[in-house]
Nucleic acid binder design. Structure first.
Lengths: 123, 123
DNA sequence: TCAATATTTCGAGAATTCTAGAATAGTCAA
DNA sequence: TTGACTATTCTAGAATTCTCGAAATATTGA
């Protein structure tokens, strides 16, 4: 990911309303949520919400599809992964021996820790 | 991590100069880098750099310590891990195949979480 | 076609952020 | 103390972002 795209993505998320929207979509999963339902869930005005969705979409963090009268928005998980990977690229100069002993601290951060799928070794 | 702190951290990173500084410090490891060296590496004016370092420190993303005439800045890896964990909290509604790669990234963020810096003003 | 629903676009004022020059403060050595 | 070095704070104008009312666009059903 290019730095300029990362700045765009971070700028998009650096806003209380947009961060709330994005996290709502991240929790909702790939099926997504209709704009109107997002407006209801966040208490936003329709035009303000639309502007914020537009910023998030412009940053590539969310996608959309029309379904009848509604437009369904969903998180762009791959883009999100790219952003997180960018932030910790070459962390500690790539010295794995420094990083390894402390990896256990973050175990609780795994969002699907109770699932059957393990995340070991996937980077 | 509270949403308002996440917004603060994301705002701090949503700036080309500050993102470059932060990534430089993430790569540098726990030992950190002197402000003057950061200025040289990024081509920033001293006062502009100082303002940007102040924003990053205020967001809790970096810490500092004095060493002689220099002030050494270093990444706050634990804070970084908290931010990444916050972004993917309750992600994907149980779809492990989506979450797994993200969780692996969050674990790597803990790689250097052994800092003993003072972190200024994050309350 | 007309009306209702769902969402986006336009416009402008308020608030915030960014940058650089100048001045200030802390540290060290002689 | 003086002087060199390192870094921060102050300040103001320029640029950008945020928000909401109003108007416009797109879709569906009668």
């Amino acid at each position: 990911m290019k730095p300029q795209y990362a700045v765009g993505a971070l700028s998009a998320l650096a806003h209380p309303g947009r961060l709330e929207i994005f996290r709502l979509l991240v929790r909702a999963g790939p099926e997504g949520v209709a704009a109107g339902e997002i407006a209801r869930a966040t208490g936003s005005l329709a035009n303000t919400l639309s502007a914020n969705l537009s910023v998030l979409a412009g940053a590539g963090l969310i996608g959309s599809r029309r379904e009848g009268r509604s437009i369904i928005y969903s998180a762009a998980y791959e883009r999100m992964r790219e952003l997180l990977a960018f932030l910790m690229e070459d962390c500690c100069g790539g010295n794995a021996e420094i990083c390894a002993p402390l990896a256990a601290i973050a175990e609780r951060a795994a969002c699907c820790a109770s699932s059957t799928m393990r995340s070991s070794g996937t980077a």
